[in-house]
Design a protein around this nucleic acid. Structure first.
Lengths: 335, 335
DNA sequence: CTGTTAGCGCGTTCAC
DNA sequence: GTGAACGCGCTAACAG
């Protein structure tokens, strides 16, 4: 990292460090010709300002920490795209951390600690444990953060989520109207608000249509990914299929479920109908095209960044922003 | 960012800053009881070391810059997962930058400049323009970097790629053996080595089987994504389908192509066979399951990080590492 | 084992 | 319009 420093640059130009600093930051108080000459030399010698020093001096960085559970999940990939693109437009960079591993809590905690040490300007998270939020609220830490896809009840925070109750209500209702009475719900961990809310929506539709809730029809996967869903559904199918439809917590799970159903020799939707959540890009070209609940993924990331920056720039300081977007049912061939 | 500093911590404990530094960094030269007491206070007061200061002092960061073209592409999502996970295991973080936009060159350049300013320890890239590599090789910049999926001929660098000629050769040969003579090749920009190499492999198989190369059967999409592929194939199909198979530069393109084919009312593979490249997770559950060329995506990212760290830690300094992994044909129902 | 101090690269008063 | 000097928070000699 033997780079040219501002001091050396000053030596080369024969001017002072402060003048260097001024032209680097386009400060007005510099004679036009001086500026020109210095800029030329900067170009020629390939000077690269050290943001570590600048940020330390200014006590602020243009870096946003992002903690996401699984970038392989097309839903999150899309959210991250939204985050990165809008952040970059606003001259911010993102440090991306995953927390997929078994011991998520530990990984999440460590990632956040590291991000805090790096003095990120703010945090964007899809936390698995509420405890994580407590860490951020600890004394002396007034770092802004916004949760995505999930929120916690105990701790009020900024967040951007989908109206999960509504979404899964619509999905379940749709299935019922298609004649299904026994609907398996393949859920994520009930520790999460999105999983809980989607279960609530599921129950709500059942109730409304006069179908009694059957606890045994709710299955929980240990990890939100295709492979897990595949395994779970395969196991269920091996026993006895006492249901005619599966509603999945998200499309990524639905994909695994579909694979299991196909492999078991059942047809979709004739034998088993499938509904997902998220409306991921590939949903429409699956076999068959997946009926799902559509959510604005890119915009979710975008909005999260905007809320964060509003707080950073002190615009809506202290005012909690909680955005809930309305999902939309996309009916396709899987039901 | 009003955080507790090491100096204030020293004041609280009644000890010196160096002692603080020592316990923070687990330096041996500290009395056990002192260490214990200090640690307790750190915990209690919630001290968070400032890495900006530490890194500035040490002239090195544990951050890796990653410039990827499109995180929505499941291939890259998987590669990034490999990068992030192995980096994190090695105590490094990644700053992720996308360069999808129209004016890629500019975005790529800017991202790299920013990353350099942030003093990332090294760079991982899938560059679109060779020019970008020149920037990194400029005087005074001896930052290590490794290219992924592509490389350049003019400039020798570290890289991790798939044997693209072999892969597309296998794919094309497979199609020919299935009886296809008119095979459309949906390619990415020929500026890229992977696109060029895959075209070469395509031609090689043709030549070997005594089929003359037809320039008009090579179509280039302007952007590597589903939507682009969908549009291009739709347009082609609207005219006249003078081919019985499509070989796509990657699965992501294949997905768009499949959608267009379905919409046009053709069957896969009866009317048009489709082959992709990458063997993305969803490939096996598409309609129909996609025949494709399998590449170790996660491992590609993993290997890239390892090469980078080898250089950072001075192990194989100056020795260029160029890894070429052998792809494997996965025959499924789309052919 | 512990404390003092210099300086990493930079921005910012405050002089001139 | 320009320069000198201080300090952001931290580590690493060096001294004790």
């Amino acid at each position: 990292m033997a780079q040219l420093t501002i001091k050396e640059l000053a030596k080369i130009t024969g001017l002072s460090v402060s003048t260097m600093s001024r032209v680097i930051n386009d400060h007005p108080d510099v004679a036009p010709k001086t500026r020109k000459r210095v800029k030329k030399i900067i170009e020629e010698f390939g000077y690269t300002p050290n943001l570590l020093a600048k940020d330390l001096r200014l006590q602020s960085t243009k870096t946003i920490g992002v903690v996401i559970s699984d970038i392989s999940n097309p839903f999150f990939a899309r959210v991250v795209k939204g985050i990165e693109n809008t952040a970059r437009q606003r001259k911010y960079n993102i440090i991306l951390c995953e927390s997929t591993e078994q011991d998520r809590l530990k990984v999440e905690k460590e990632s956040i600690e590291t991000l805090l040490k790096k003095r990120v300007a703010g945090l964007l998270l899809t936390p698995v444990h509420e405890e994580v939020v407590d860490i951020l609220a600890r004394k002396g830490r007034e770092i802004p953060f916004v949760l995505m896809s999930r929120h916690f009840i105990k701790t009020p925070t900024n967040y951007v989520v989908s109206d999960d109750i509504l979404g899964s209500y619509l999905a379940t209702k749709h299935l019922i109207e298609k004649g299904h009475r026994k609907i398996l719900y393949l859920n994520g961990s009930s520790r999460l608000s999105d999983a809980r809310d989607r279960l609530t929506g599921y129950k709500k539709a059942l109730l409304e249509k006069g179908i009694s809730f059957d606890e045994s029809l709710v299955k929980t996967v240990s990890g939100i990914n295709m492979e897990e869903a595949y395994k779970v559904v395969k196991r269920i199918l091996a026993k006895k299929a006492d249901f005619t439809a599966i509603f999945c917590f998200c499309d990524y799970l639905a994909m695994g479920a579909m694979r299991a159903i196909h492999e078991a020799g059942w047809r979709i939707p004739e034998d088993i109908a499938v509904v997902g959540y998220d409306d991921v890009e590939v949903a429409s070209i699956l076999e068959p095209p997946l009926t799902t609940v559509s959510t604005p993924k890119y915009q979710l990331g975008e909005k999260a960044v905007e809320i964060l920056l509003d707080h950073l720039l002190g615009k809506k300081h202290k005012t909690l922003q909680q955005v809930v977007v309305k999902p939309k049912l996309m009916v396709r061939k899987s039901t």
